[in-house]
Design a protein around this nucleic acid. Structure first.
Length: 439
DNA sequence: TGGGGTTAT
DNA sequence: ATAACCC
């Protein structure tokens, strides 16, 4: 079948982008249903990072300060969302659910997934042709309200894609109680851009003839995923502000400014072209935990912060079952201007014996690890001089599978091959299995 | 402005 | 190790 897929590669893929609505707020509403019909914000430090649609109706926006949000909406209920555990867990349930339909699922953050459903669509198209039908119903919106041409198999395939997307959303709702948007198109860029066109809990399919319109509808190059803050500044300095500017800009000049690979990729993006594959994310490549604060200025405080971060992290690593071979400490030093840029980090190999016992029963001696992290800290900061930190982060990476004899649960890939999208039980089995084996 | 993540150089 | 990107 993979032969079919690559031979037919030129015909075009069918990609779905799934984007959950105000994800953290949804998770909080599931955790506490009394919050359902009230304006709800999720708070991290002094920021409302996201809020439900009731709160949005009353003027609250994402990433608004708590102060502004309360002014706009005094009845706003706030829950603390600094511990990402509930969101992370629900996020992986979403990815796993999509993985039951098809193995090609790529995560983007906690609340978005790309799914390459080319093969599913191909199967359904064959069934359809054998049954002698030529028409299928489109699910959700068609971008621009473009008319369908049933003789165009690209149209038909995308319409079948819209039905699959509808099934994704139906499964997310029925099994996890989550709502979200979906976009269906021939590549990741377009699927992502089109998924946001009808906003809560709706879906949209893009037909190729409307690609130009979709790209032209973007106001400013920064709306293109892949063109971030830095690149936007550099492009603006070249006089590039709109999508059209970027499309017609001399490629040679662009390559000199951004390097050939970035320049070529971005210019293709400006035309709505994106050949990047949907790369299955699988289990995470790293585990990190961070905390930000107003001020931390002594070695003792640093050590205390690290000792706060470690237990939760080690617990996560233990549950994952793999062993990290690298540990990293990241700091942010105070700077009145430019609070975003000034992160520094030091990393080192993690001696296997150090991590060996650490996950086991949670109350172990953390001090060798803490000492190691303090050494990393001293590589960045001369502790004899005054310092002022505003963030500390610990990250474990370079994860290696344990020899299969002594393995915990590896939820992710195991489940991909097991259950067909059935009706019965789920989740609980996996949790129990991991505990049973872990002890 | 949080608390995460990824890939490229 | 950093810099860029994503949410």
């Amino acid at each position: 079948h993979s032969k079919c897929a690559s031979a037919r590669g030129a015909v075009g893929r069918v990609i779905v982008h799934v984007d959950l609505d105000c994800f953290y707020a949804q998770v909080e509403m599931i955790r506490n249903p009394e919050l359902r019909d009230k304006p709800l914000g999720v708070q991290q430090k002094s920021i409302v990072v996201t809020c439900n649609y009731e709160a949005r109706r009353l003027g609250v926006k994402k990433l608004m300060s708590v102060k502004d949000a309360k002014e706009k909406c005094p009845q706003l209920i706030l829950v603390n969302g600094e511990d990402l555990t509930p969101y992370r867990e629900m996020s992986y349930k979403v990815t796993e659910l999509l993985g039951e339909f098809c193995p090609l699922v790529e995560r983007l953050g906690f609340d978005e997934n790309f799914v390459d459903i080319t093969e599913i669509v191909e199967q359904r198209l064959n069934q359809l042709q054998q049954s002698g039908r030529s028409r299928v119903c489109v699910s959700g919106h068609v971008y621009n309200n473009q008319a369908l041409n049933w003789r165009d198999t690209t149209h038909v395939r995308l319409v079948i894609g819209s039905q699959v997307a509808e099934e994704f959303r139906e499964a997310l709702s029925a099994r996890l109680g989550l709502t979200g948007c979906a976009g269906v198109a021939s590549n990741k860029l377009l699927a992502k851009l089109v998924s946001g066109t009808f906003k809560p809990n709706q879906q949209t399919v893009l037909l190729p003839e409307s690609c130009r319109d979709l790209m032209r509808s973007l106001d400013g190059i920064q709306k293109v995923p892949g063109i971030g803050y830095k690149t936007t500044k550099r492009l603006e300095a070249l006089g590039v502000e709109s999508m059209c500017d970027l499309q017609v800009f001399p490629p040679a000049t662009l390559e000199k400014e951004l390097g050939a690979s970035v320049a070529q990729r971005l210019q293709k993006l400006s035309y709505g072209e994106d050949d990047s594959p949907v790369t299955p994310s699988g289990p995470p490549q790293s585990f990190s935990d961070e905390d930000s604060f107003k001020k931390c200025s002594s070695e003792v405080e640093v050590k205390e912060k690290i000792e706060e971060l470690l237990p939760k992290l080690l617990d996560r690593i233990h549950k994952d079952g793999r062993q990290p071979r690298t540990v990293r400490l990241t700091i942010r030093q105070f700077s009145p201007t430019d609070r975003w840029f000034n992160r520094e980090s030091r990393q080192c190999p993690l001696p296997p014996h150090l991590l060996q016992r650490l996950g086991k029963e949670s109350s172990n001696d953390l001090s060798p690890l803490v000492d190691l992290l303090m050494k990393l800290f001293r590589k960045m900061i001369d502790v004899d001089l005054p310092f002022h930190l505003t963030l500390l982060s610990v990250c474990f990476s370079n994860l290696k599978d344990l020899p299969s004899s002594k393995q915990g649960s590896i939820g992710f890939y195991l489940k991909q091959v097991s259950p067909p999208a059935g009706s019965g039980k789920r989740g609980r089995e996996v949790e129990d299995a991991s505990r049973a084996e872990g002890t």
